[in-house]
Simulated scan of single mutants.
Amino acid sequence: MNKFLPSLSALLVACATVFSAHAQEVKGDAKAGEKKIAMCIGCHGIQGYQASFPEIYKVPMISGQGAKYIVSALTAYQKGDRKHPSMRGIADNLSDQDMADIAAHYEGLGKVEAAPAPGKAADGDARVAALVSKGACVSCHGDSFSKPIDPSYPKIAGQHSDYLFVALKSYKTEGNATWGRANGIMGGVAKQFSNAELKEMAKYLSSLPGELKTVPQSKFK
């Protein structure tokens, strides 16, 4: 019994720590975030801008993306769970408050003249429907792929297909120092499919109506 008490105490402390972390979640300020995006607008503020590493693809649309997902993504770059030299360098220079403010800003951009939220996505052809069903994509990203079940998951409907393809492939990449994403859930999903199948899924998801967009920003305010 005495051996059990230290373990119970440790568990209680761990639970209290987790609760405290949630209670102290940083609240983002969109106005403050607008002044912190100098390193973002060069890629994410230009319509159709293309990245060239590890291959050529359009950078993701992040205006209208969920704030908690943006924070989650930036944190993953900072921790090295997402390996991308440029994004790692940017994230390393951001505090938790900076991330929250930037995320609030980009989430807010999507609410300007926003269209009604899309309903359940059309299934597409039978082959794509089977692939999406096999991946159980709706279980996290929602029936419309614009209303994820957890705000730390991304909206993916209407996102650039070439970006989605590169992102999905990155979850299959292991042991590369400069490219890849460490995520147990998405890794398990992506590894079920060939790259050709991932490209089909990315094309389908990109064709769906969504809430994501690029808001051009000509200068830093």
Rank of each mutant, 00 (worst) to 15 (best):
D101P: 07
D101R: 00
I102E: 03
I102D: 03
A103P: 02
A104S: 04
A104R: 00
A104D: 03
Y106T: 01
Y106K: 00
G108E: 12
G108M: 10
G108W: 08
G108V: 07
L109G: 08
V112M: 05
V112F: 03
V112D: 09
E113Q: 12
E113I: 05
A114R: 05
A115W: 00
A115D: 00
A115I: 00
A117Q: 11
A117V: 14
P118V: 05
G119A: 10
A121P: 06
A121K: 09
A122H: 09
D123Y: 13
G124H: 07
G124I: 05
A126F: 10
A126V: 15
R127H: 11
V128Q: 08
A129E: 10
A129M: 05
A130S: 11
A130G: 09
A130N: 09
A130F: 01
V132F: 02
S133L: 14
S133K: 15
S133G: 15
K134I: 13
K134G: 13
G135N: 11
G135L: 06
A136C: 09
C137K: 03
C137P: 07
C137G: 08
V138H: 02
S139H: 14
S139Q: 14
S139M: 13
C140K: 05
C140V: 03
C140S: 06
G142P: 02
G142H: 04
D143T: 05
S144H: 07
S144K: 08
F145P: 01
F145S: 05
F145G: 07
S146V: 04
S146F: 01
P148E: 00
P148H: 01
I149E: 13
D150P: 00
D150M: 02
P151C: 05
S152F: 11
S152A: 14
S152Y: 11
Y153F: 12
P154T: 04
P154R: 01
I156Y: 04
A157R: 06
A157T: 04
A157S: 07
A157L: 05
H160Q: 14
H160P: 15
H160G: 12
S161T: 14
S161Y: 13
D162R: 07
D162V: 06
D162T: 06
Y163R: 09
Y163D: 09
Y163E: 11
L164K: 07
L164Y: 11
L164N: 10
F165I: 15
V166F: 05
V166W: 05
A167P: 09
A167C: 12
L168Y: 13
L168D: 09
K169M: 13
K169F: 12
K169I: 14
K169N: 15
S170P: 08
K172Q: 15
K172R: 15
K172A: 15
T173W: 06
E174H: 12
E174D: 14
G175M: 12
N176D: 15
T178Q: 13
T178W: 10
W179H: 08
G180H: 06
G180V: 06
R181K: 13
A182T: 15
N183I: 03
N183V: 01
N183D: 13
G184H: 04
I185E: 13
I185P: 03
M186Q: 02
G187T: 01
G187D: 00
V189G: 00
V189Q: 04
A190S: 12
A190H: 01
K191L: 07
K191H: 08
